[in-house]
Computed example of a mutant assay.
Amino acid sequence: MTALRPRRRTRWTPQKVALLALGIVLALATIFPLVWMITGAFKPATEVNGSAILPSEPTLENFAYVFTQVPFLRYMFNSFVVSAAVTVLALWFHSMAAYALARLRFPGRETIFLLIFSTMLVSLPVILIPTFVVVRTLGMVDSYAGLIVPAIFNAFGIFLLRQFYVSLPGELEEAALVDGASYWRIYRSIILPLSRPILSALTVFFFLTNWNSFVWPLTITSDPNLRVVQLGIATFQQQYAADWNYVLAAATVAAMPTLLIFFFFQRQIVESIKSAGFK
C-alpha cells in the first residue's frame, strides 16, 4: 500500500500576497456594479438612490411594471432572433472561409487573409455611415435583415478559426483525399467535428456581442417593433429618467441570458482557448 504524499504547503511570499490582494480588489470592483444593479432592481423608488446596498423592503413591483407597461418581451424577442441568426450564419460562413484560407492552395490566398485581418483594425464608428448607406441602398432599413446581415461578417471569427485549422495535422486530409473524399466532404465530416471546442467559444462570443449591440440597431432602425433589448432600455430610461428602479429591473432581466450562457459554457470557453494555442 503506497503511502499518502503529504500536501505541499503554499509558501506565501510578499509577491504572492500582493497578487492575491490585487486579484481580490479587481474581482470586487468587477462584481460590485452587477450586485448594485440586481439589488437596485428590488428596491422601491424611495430607496434606489440611497447608499444602502440591500433593500430594506424588497419588492417585485419594478419587474411587474417592466413587463406590463413596456413591451420588454418584444425587445428581448428581437434581440434573441438577431443574436441567434447572426451566430448561426456567422459560424457557417466563417468556418468555410477559414477552412479555405487555411487548407486550400490558390493564388492570392495570403493577400486575401491579410485584407480580412486588416479590417480588425477598423472600428465600427469609422464604417458606420458607409455601412448605413449600403444597407439603405439595398432596402434593408427598419428590417431584421438590416440588423442581421451586416453583423455576420466579422474578421475575428475568421482569424481565430483559421489559426485553429492551420494547427490541424495535414495527414487527416491526405488520407481522406486518397479515399476519394472531396474538400466539401472533408470540411463537413472531419473539420467541423474537430472544431467543436472553438465553435462553442465563438458561439458564446457572437451571441453575447449581438445581444449587447446598441450602436448599429440605433442607426438602422426607427420602428419601435424592431427595438432590441439594449435600445429598449435606452429609450425606457429617456422616457422615465427619474425612475431608476424600473431601469435597473429592465437591465437585470436583460443581463440574465448573458450570465446563464457564460455559466453553462464557461468550460467550452476555457477549452477553446487551450486548443487555439493561446499562451
Rank of each mutant, 00 (worst) to 15 (best):
L121M: 12
L231P: 00
L231Y: 03
P150W: 09
V141P: 00
S189V: 06
A234V: 10
Q238C: 02
V215Y: 07
G108H: 02
T137G: 15
G139V: 03
E173C: 06
L231Q: 04
L34N: 12
P193L: 11
F63G: 12
L248D: 04
D179K: 04
V204S: 01
A175L: 14
L114S: 07
L218F: 10
L192W: 04
K16A: 15
S272M: 09
R227C: 05
T39G: 11
W244N: 09
L248H: 03
N154I: 10
V141C: 07
L19W: 07
L19Q: 08
P150L: 13
L172Y: 03
L192K: 01
A85P: 06
A181P: 00
V88G: 02
L260R: 01
Q69N: 07
L89W: 08
I112P: 00
T119V: 01
R11I: 03
A45F: 01
P14C: 07
Y165N: 09
W184S: 13
P169N: 02
N154D: 15
V166L: 12
Y65L: 15
I53M: 09
A41D: 08
R103E: 11
Q230K: 05
T131V: 15
A151I: 01
S118V: 07
N225V: 14
R188L: 12
S79T: 14
I53L: 15
A3N: 08
Q15T: 12
F265R: 02
L91D: 00
A254V: 10
M37K: 03
A181D: 05
K16W: 10
V35T: 04
F72P: 08
L192F: 06
L218W: 08
V70C: 13
K43C: 07
I127T: 14
W12C: 12
A52Y: 11
S272E: 11
F214Q: 08
P107G: 01
E110K: 03
S200H: 03
S195D: 15
A21D: 01
T131A: 15
T13D: 10
A3W: 02
R11K: 01
L89R: 06
A251D: 06
Q230F: 04
V25F: 08
L128C: 02
P71R: 00
N78Q: 09
A18D: 04
F113W: 02
F132W: 07
N62M: 01
R5K: 08
P257G: 11
L22G: 12
E57M: 14
I233S: 06
S143F: 05
D142A: 09
V135S: 13
L124H: 07
V88N: 03
P58C: 08
G157S: 12
P58G: 11
Y246D: 11
L128I: 05
G180Y: 09
M140S: 05
